[in-house]
Design a binder for these strands. Structure first.
Length: 755
DNA sequence: GTGCCTGCTCACGGG
DNA sequence: GAGCAGGCAC
């Protein structure tokens, strides 16, 4: 028996169709990854295709890793030669080799959203744009959409003819690109757009990659935007061996430029394309799948298909209503605890999915309270944290002195007495001489207007030069640790006088960052700071989600795409939240269809058990909202559910009286509890503040030491108290330690002992 | 130049 | 509820 005998008829057909364009419409849970991996195996083992000629593109690193692993298991020899990666990292790899052809340096840095915002802000200020009328956010998204559509600043300007706002955006867009180029930086959208530009400008480069990638596969094709489509089209233009896999019903990234027409019109672009539909679902039980089908069929703009399963109907879809979000969270946590207690599932089998990241907080608080293990995926990206970005800015400056943004970020971190006035003067000089900000710093003595301030810049410049010379022979971990030590970053964090919990979180994050660097060094043969930095720029939280972890997953429905769980809780099923208010009031009906696809994605994540919850009242940005039950819940026929969904017209009092008994018991008095385990990216910072004030001193507490006394700290050793300041809830103590330098701390946390 | 306070605005999703 | 610009005191 061969490995292909386990496939169904359509799957097999897809696997055997190797030559020519192929559109694989793969419904949720229809085994598409299986098809893709088997197809690769078939190409290599049966068709004699050289693995070197195969390119497989996915959207997330996680999906790429998963495919890589499965291909490795299936294909014996040469599988490591297959190029499996995301759009963004594919482009980085190509650009690192050739972007000099477009006048960039191959060691470019990658700007994230925060970096973009800083640049845009600076431009708006300089151009005297009233950001109350034209928001930076709006400009950013306009530029991003332009790049998704491959519209250059010049074209944008031409299109803006007569439109005042667009003209302004055009001028910002143009300046933004100039600054990025001068900083030798690219943003996420540039990665794709510049690669397309490169291919169009340099046919020889394109030819090389066309001959290399004779067989191309693209996963999650419904989420590609125009630029990504063009990239793929160019690459496949010579051999036409392009297999795209997608599901128009799961297209949920329109806001990011995804063009659903790419999949709907595939056959127009490639008239000779084979189209194969995978409609048998292997994931969910009958009731869940039916519920999903019933919801999605309300969309008009979709390719006709209907998923079916051989599985039993299974449990009905659970529906629960609550008075408010707290009770909703309480129910979800207890329901999971109950299932785990009864041995029905483990924590790791459960996922709580919500529409917006803001909803995670209330759930998290409940999990902390109950001491249940959980893991928040997404939210604030680990690498976007202030302390991590500071260190990254040091590394970027060491690696690429042309990254002005990084230099400006750290020139006064820790405090070096360099303020805006000094920055402006240096920038002015840099502009005049047409050199980078960092190079201007090095020539500080030539900047007459600086006066005495020039002396304050000297230590920074000589320190950076030392780092750079060390970079030649230091590893990445060594470099990070050296930087932290030289700038005394821990001392700086302490001097910020933030809440103690917050400082501890930051220190923990730094430790985690160091270990990530160590892992990078262990897992890569060739270690380069540039590659390390670009790898970091491209990872998201979903990517680092551990599979074997026994904890409940909390994430947005967007993050959950491509994942499956036996127990799924879709919370906050309210009109106004999901679908979002923005969608309800939108005059574009396709917005609601996208929202419905999101509901479809959410429902189809569930294998055995799906629970939908609704809260009558919910706190949203500080105010209480009363929303009707989500229309998506109402689209599920009642015979598929275990509770009746009230019609919107019913009186509110009638609506909520059949809540399950479990949530009616008296409220537990909240106790500050340490999270069961804090691991994973989301959880670390988020639990901070729960214990807020718990250790604060009573008003009449008297310390047994005073100014001038010698004290001992558990970590810093002995030192002398320089200053003691009474604050409403605590004493602020400044201590000069013998070996650890000067620290400012709160008496209640520092637990100093008089010697 | 720095630190702190206040009041204002903004809030969907993410590589 | 949070982040940030702007104003103010030092």
């Amino acid at each position: 028996m061969s490995i292909y005998d386990t496939l169904n008829r359509e799957q097999k057909e897809a696997v055997l169709t190797v030559e020519g364009p192929l559109l694989l419409l793969a419904g949720a849970g229809s085994g598409k990854t299986r098809v893709l991996t088997h197809r690769i195996a078939y190409m290599i083992d049966e068709m004699g295709v050289n693995p070197w000629h195969i390119l497989a593109i996915t959207f997330t690193n996680k999906a790429a890793n998963e495919m890589r692993e499965r291909v490795d298991n299936l294909v014996g020899f040469g599988s490591e030669q297959i190029w499996v990666s995301t759009f963004h990292s594919t482009c980085v790899k190509i650009l690192r080799r050739h972007i000099d052809r477009l006048g960039f340096d191959n060691g470019f840095t990658i700007y994230d959203t925060d970096d973009q915002k800083t640049v845009i802000k600076e431009i708006c200020k300089r151009f005297q744009i009233d950001t109350k009328q034209l928001k930076e956010r709006a400009i950013m998204s306009a530029i991003s959409s332009a790049k998704d559509e491959l519209i250059s600043p010049l074209e944008y300007e031409i299109n803006a003819f007569g439109d005042f706002t667009k003209k302004k955006i055009a001028s910002v867009y143009k300046e933004y690109q100039t600054i990025l180029k001068r900083s030798n930086a690219l943003d996420f959208d540039d990665l794709i757009m510049k690669t397309v530009e490169l291919f169009k400008a340099c046919p020889d480069v394109l030819y090389n990659y066309q001959e290399r990638f004779k067989y191309i596969m693209v996963d999650e094709y419904q989420d590609t935007n125009t630029a990504q489509f063009e990239l793929i089209r160019l690459l496949a233009d010579r051999h036409h061996n392009l297999c795209v896999v997608g599901d128009d019903d799961q297209s949920i990234y329109k806001f990011r430029g995804a063009n659903i027409r790419n999949i709907l019109d595939y056959e127009k672009v490639y008239p000779e394309a084979r189209v194969i539909k995978l409609e048998q679902n292997y994931r969910s039980t009958g009731n869940i799948l039916n519920a999903a089908n019933q919801v999605i069929k309300n969309n008009k703009g979709r390719k006709a298909k209907s998923l079916w399963t051989e599985k039993d109907a299974g449990a009905k879809v659970h529906y629960r209503q609550f008075d408010n979000g707290y009770e909703e969270a309480e129910f979800v946590a207890e329901d999971i605890a109950r299932k785990v207690r009864k041995g029905e599932c483990g924590y790791g089998d459960c996922a709580i999915l919500y529409r917006t990241n803001a909803q995670s907080r209330i759930m998290e608080e409940r999990f902390v309270l109950e001491g249940m293990p959980y893991n928040i995926v997404g939210g604030v990206n680990f690498y976007a944290r202030q302390e991590i970005k500071d260190i990254l800015a040091y590394l970027k400056t060491i690696d690429n002195g042309r990254d002005d943004l990084a230099v400006k970020r750290i020139i006064n971190v820790p405090k070096r007495g360099v303020g805006n006035a000094t920055l402006d003067k240096v920038q002015e000089y840099a502009d005049m001489r047409n050199i980078s900000f960092y190079d201007a710093l090095r020539e500080k003595d030539q900047i007459v207007s600086l006066g005495k301030a020039a002396a304050k810049l000297e230590p920074f410049v000589s320190m950076m030069q030392t780092f750079r010379s060390k970079a030649q022979y230091y590893g990445i971990q060594d470099m990070i640790e050296d930087v932290l030590e030289v700038i005394d970053y821990k001392g700086y964090l302490n001097s910020l006088n933030e809440e103690d919990e917050k400082t501890e979180d930051r220190l923990r994050n730094i430790d985690e960052f160091i270990s990530k660097a160590a892992i990078y060094e262990q897992t890569h043969d060739e270690i380069s700071l540039t590659d390390f930095l670009s790898e970091i720029a491209l990872v998201s939280d979903v990517d680092s989600m551990e599979d074997a972890d026994e904890r409940v997953r909390l994430m947005t429905i967007h993050s959950a795409k491509g994942l499956e769980f036996t127990q799924v809780y879709l919370v906050g099923m309210e009109d106004g939240l999901f679908p979002s208010y923005m969608t309800i009031v939108s005059d574009d009906p396709t917005d609601m269809e996208e929202e419905r696809r999101l509901a479809y994605v959410g429902i189809t994540r569930a294998m055995e058990d799906l629970t939908l919850t609704y809260a009558k009242a919910r706190m949203v940005r500080g105010e209480t909202q009363y929303n009707p039950v989500s229309r998506f819940v109402r689209e599920i026929p009642s015979e598929l559910m275990d509770n009746t969904v009230p019609t919107v017209k019913r009186r509110e009092e009638d609506v909520f009286d059949f809540r399950p008994k479990a949530v009616l018991k008296p409220k537990i008095t909240p106790q500050p509890v340490k999270p069961f385990i804090t691991q994973g990216i989301g959880s670390l910072n988020r639990v901070a503040g729960i214990n807020k004030g718990a250790a604060a001193l009573e008003a009449d507490t008297v310390l047994d030491y005073t100014e001038g006394d010698r004290v001992r700290h558990v970590k810093y050793g002995e030192g002398k108290v320089l200053k003691l300041e009474r604050e409403p809830r605590d004493y602020k103590v400044t201590v000069q330690f013998d070996n650890a330098g000067q620290k400012i701390m709160y008496a209640s946390f520092a637990k100093l002992k008089r010697v």
